[in-house]
Design a protein around this nucleic acid. Structure first.
Length: 917
RNA sequence: GCUCGGAUGGUGGAAUGGUAGACACGCAAGACUUAAAAUCUUGUGACCAUCGCGGUUGUGCGGGUUCAAGUCCCGCUCCGAGUACCA
């Protein structure tokens, strides 16, 4: 019987589905294990061969854990809201829901062919009302919460209102947008509307006028992680800064907890590092500066308080509120002109073109340490969004200030003994202070501490920790997203009643903004709640993906996001697999969202993902043919240098082992119908290059094609065999035959001349050794996510057993259990062929036995001063004394030792490894 | 600029400080075949060799630690990823 993978795989996929083999239920008698993949956005292009890489790895791990006796939760779903479906809808009028469902069906079809062990009964789709009801619910909870810095947790907003009623803002230590100050009497005297406006300053989900990344091409605002280098990540459209009233989430309140939490989870150092940088904690001081001839005071943030005696000018961000307060009459027109220029420059220009620009305000600040007058300037190298939007410039010890000072000819004062600032500033925080009054003679670190102390004692400011992490902009002016559970009364936002959730996405006639420039929801009919207008914005993409892992635990629950008991069983994700591209987006929002739900007591774990692995990207491997210029003749790769050629992308699906299928090529395009070829050894060899996998490069490989040709088990093994999971690598089909050959060899261990042929005989020591070597290696490898070396171990084992002509049932049956996580279909088929009636998924993963692994011959490496190595074989039970005797008497030893006694004999783990002379 | 990775045969890649190159691809030779494909066997880092003995050399470069370094330490070069006027 041939190894008919197509038939086998179809049969078992059907069987698994019908018998609900992968359905899991809470089972308190067994330990749980939660394995999660980052759920995909179902794009119109379908899956390519790179997408399943992580899913295969997580599937192997899930199946392994199940065989090890764990109750494994391994769900899958879809991140169904997204820009592409909406862009497509704008162009074609096709409702995004229709496109999305079509794409989901296509994804599902492709996923099913690979034989994953997902529990599909738990599937979630972020665009389904049953699902986004809980996204809206969480938003309502955030709206009704504030963050208490003392308790370090979210608290109900009602508590805060009670505080306001009694003591106003006195002794308040809570996260807020702006520092407000009022008494209880003032609060109680305010109108409902005024009170609501104030509360927005404290809510975790709040509405505020903020500078946002506005993307005109997409017609919406974007969060910081959706923008890179001044352009949108999706589509690469330019982004500009704009002041808009938008929904925001007070993620910044959680900055310290997000940072601290990193120490409790098992993520790669590089990913933790990326998050640390994104959160960007910096310790420093806020210092107040008075302005000469004015009562205006302004505050700067600095991490280098020690350099206060080197401040020679101050700089305000162009957008800073202080600007209009400090500009003098005579400078007004010049400043105005400068602000106009800055405003016109896009973020992108500002970044690429680092020209020094700026303008003097006419005002002077007073240095609180020595009373000196310092000119105040405006420049766009100071950002409004960080710190206070104002800095004290120390050109001697900050490279940006240095460039500015040089350009505008401002004084530069060196503050550190022996530093050379003639060419550039001295930025390092080291050396001994000078020109600094009471700080002179201190080393920089001491000086920073002493200055901070001084600032606090003299009331010049305060010690402050700043974070780079900004609050997340949560509004999108788009159609295809979750509607907000918010309505407006008297211009103020109110949440809809929880019992009225979900607020379903309404139908609209077009997916474009209204004539008035409102978001597409402005087109919806009767878009009201109890007669009040509903919010027209929708939520961003990360809203639905922030808590989906919790919903899988209890995806059909209509009364709660997750049942408390059920969450108490599944807890958080033990293993999360996905790409690095979510390091500063999804993985920050998810952690924030989960911490918020933790504060509410909805979930029992503070961190959502205990262990996280980033699978590498699969790049494309493009193939080229070489056309001789101005002809229709193509020359093979190794001969191309003899001609003047143009490389042309050719569809990789017409190329096998870099050899072109000439007939297929001729039929590919009418232009090539009459093409001629210059061959080498009768073949046309293509060139290749690693590029992004994309249609335009003709290098997209569809997993369906591989499954059709080699089977899902081969695809699974091959994707793992390609290299380490976390490494990016090009897809290259050149080695797939080797993996496929391995499966056929395995098959042939069972079947001789078309008949099942297994023996009940007792295995030999050699056979047992081969098997247990494999079990040991694979156990170790799976636990360390080193799947490529496991595949190699299988190949070795099967080669050994083939050489031993082993067809013993005892050996083969354990072998296929060990293989089952990797190649479930063939394992299931052989498992049943051996007479088992239950699924191989419920077998017990065999333990290895060291006793079988003992070598009967021990090899000793003997070398002299590490040189002239040679090997000696001894029976395993030879004593070390005996070995040493033989080693020293060996002719090579005699030669090297020249009759002298060795100085030292190095023994490692009971083995002589070196003789030192 | 900063941070984090990485550099090993023709290729993808293996190697708890202890026989570098597992396993696979490719290539070569052979077996089977009218032939091809498939399959199987053998060989395969480079250099030297009285090519079935045996030797030299070899993990990006330069140093160091060690009896012993692909692996640890210091200094470079190159490549990749992330991030950036963050005061």
């Amino acid at each position: 019987m041939e190894y008919n993978f197509n038939e086998i795989e179809k049969k078992w996929q059907k069987n698994w589905k019908e018998n609900k083999i992968y359905q899991v239920k809470e089972d308190k008698s067994r330990p749980k294990y939660y394995v999660l993949d980052m759920f995909p956005y179902p794009s119109g292009a379908g899956l390519h061969v790179g997408h399943p890489l992580g899913y295969i790895a997580s599937d192997i791990y899930s199946r392994y854990k199940r065989l090890k006796g764990f109750n494994v939760l391994h769900p899958m779903g879809y991140d169904a809201y997204g820009l592409p479906a909406e862009q497509y809808a704008i162009q074609t009028g096709q409702h995004p829901a229709i496109t999305t469902i079509k794409n989901i069906e296509r994804y599902r079809e492709q996923l099913d062919k690979i034989g994953f062990s997902f529990d599909w009964d738990r599937e979630v789709r972020t665009c389904e009302p049953d699902y986004y009801k809980w996204t809206q619910w969480a938003f309502i909870k955030m709206f009704h919460s504030y963050y208490c810095n003392d308790a370090q947790q979210a608290r109900p907003i009602e508590e805060l209102i009670d505080v306001f009623k009694i003591q106003g803002t006195k002794d308040l230590n809570i996260a807020r947008s702006e520092e407000l100050s009022f008494t209880a009497e003032e609060w109680n005297a305010k109108s409902e509307k005024e009170q609501q406006e104030i509360l927005l300053n404290y809510r975790i989900a709040y509405l505020a006028d903020t500078m946002v990344n506005w993307c005109p091409a997409l017609g919406t605002v974007l969060a910081n992680d959706e923008v890179s280098e001044g352009v949108s990540i999706r589509g690469g459209h330019t982004v500009e800064q704009r002041l808009m009233r938008q929904w925001c989430l007070r993620v910044s309140a959680y900055a310290q907890r997000l940072l601290d939490g990193l120490d409790t989870i098992d993520w790669t150092e590089s990913l933790k590092e990326t998050q640390k940088n994104w959160i960007g904690r910096s310790e420093g001081a806020e210092m107040n500066f008075k302005i000469k001839n004015s009562d205006v005071e302004f505050t700067v943030f600095t991490t280098r308080a020690d350099t206060i005696f080197g401040v020679t000018f101050m700089v305000l961000a162009p957008e800073s509120d202080y600007v209009c307060q400090v500009v003098t009459e005579e400078q007004k027109s010049e400043v105005k002109a400068y602000l106009e220029v800055v405003k016109r420059r896009t973020e992108r220009e500002r970044m690429s073109d680092r020209k020094v620009t700026g303008v003097f305000t006419g005002s002077y600040a007073i240095n609180p340490f020595n009373g000196k007058e310092i000119p105040i300037w405006i420049s766009d190298y100071v950002l409004a969004g960080y710190g206070t939007g104002a800095i004290m410039a120390v050109p001697g010890h900050d490279s940006r200030d240095y460039a500015f000072a040089k350009y505008f000819n401002l004084p530069i004062i060196p503050l550190i003994q022996g530093c050379d600032i003639s060419e550039e500033s001295f930025d390092a925080k080291e050396g001994i202070m000078m020109n600094s009054d009471f700080l002179n003679g201190l080393i920089v670190k001491e000086a920073i501490e002493k200055t901070k102390q001084y600032i606090v004692e003299k009331g010049l400011g305060k010690v402050k920790v700043n974070y780079r992490l900004r609050d997340a902009i949560f509004s999108r002016q788009r159609y295809w997203g979750e509607p907000f559970p918010i309505y407006y009364k008297d211009g103020m936002p109110y949440t809809v009643d929880e019992k009225d959730l979900p607020i379903e996405l309404p139908e609209v006639d077009k997916f474009l903004p209204t004539e008035k420039g409102e978001p597409p929801l402005g087109r919806a009919k009767n878009w009201t709640y109890n007669g009040y207008p509903l919010e027209l914005n929708t939520m961003p993409g990360f809203a639905g993906s922030s808590a989906y892992y919790i919903r899988y635990e209890d995806s059909h629950d209509n009364d709660a996001l997750v049942d408390k008991d059920i969450n108490g069983y599944w807890r958080n994700v033990d293993l999360y697999i996905g790409g690095t591209e979510h390091a500063t987006g999804h993985l920050v929002y998810s952690r924030f969202w989960n911490k918020f739900l933790f504060d509410l007591g909805v979930v029992c774990e503070e961190e959502p993902f205990k262990k996280l692995i980033n699978q590498g990207m699969i790049q494309g491997r493009s193939n080229f043919v070489y056309r001789i210029k101005n002809t229709n003749t193509f020359v093979s790769y190794h001969l191309k240098d003899q001609y003047d050629v143009t490389p042309i992308h050719v569809d990789v699906n017409m190329v096998s082992n870099d050899m072109l299928d000439i007939e297929a090529f001729k039929n590919w395009n009418p232009e090539y119908k009459t093409a001629e070829f210059v061959l080498e050894d009768g073949k046309y060899i293509c060139g290749w290059a690693v590029e992004k996998m994309s249609k335009s490069m003709f290098n997209v490989v569809n997993p369906d094609v591989i499954v059709e040709k080699y089977g899902a088990d081969t695809l699974r093994l091959y994707e793992m065999f390609l290299g380490p999971l976390e490494q990016s690598k090009p897809w290259d089909t050149n080695g797939i035959d080797g993996v496929h050959r391995f499966l056929r060899k395995l098959w042939n261990l069972f079947y001789k001349e078309d008949k099942l042929s297994v023996s009940e005989e007792q295995p030999t020591a050699e056979e047992l050794k081969s098997l247990h070597k494999l079990i040991k290696k694979v156990t170790y490898d799976i636990e360390n996510f080193s799947f490529n070396t496991s595949v190699a171990a299988f190949m070795i084992c099967v080669n050994e057993l083939t050489a031993l002509k082993c067809n013993k049932k005892a050996i083969l049956s354990d072998l296929i259990i060990v293989l089952a996580p990797f190649a479930p279909h063939i394992a299931e088929e052989l498992w049943h062929a051996l007479g088992n009636t239950t699924t191989v998924c419920d077998a017990k993963f065999p333990e290895y036995n060291e006793a079988y692994l003992v070598e009967d011959i021990v090899k000793y490496t003997v070398s002299f001063n590490g040189k002239a190595r040679y090997l000696l074989d001894f029976p395993a039970d030879t004593s070390l004394d005996e070995v040493e005797k033989v080693v020293l008497a060996h002719e090579n030893s005699v030669k090297w030792l020249e009759g002298k006694a060795p100085k030292k004999v190095i023994v490692v783990k009971g083995k002589i490894v070196n003789v030192v002379i």
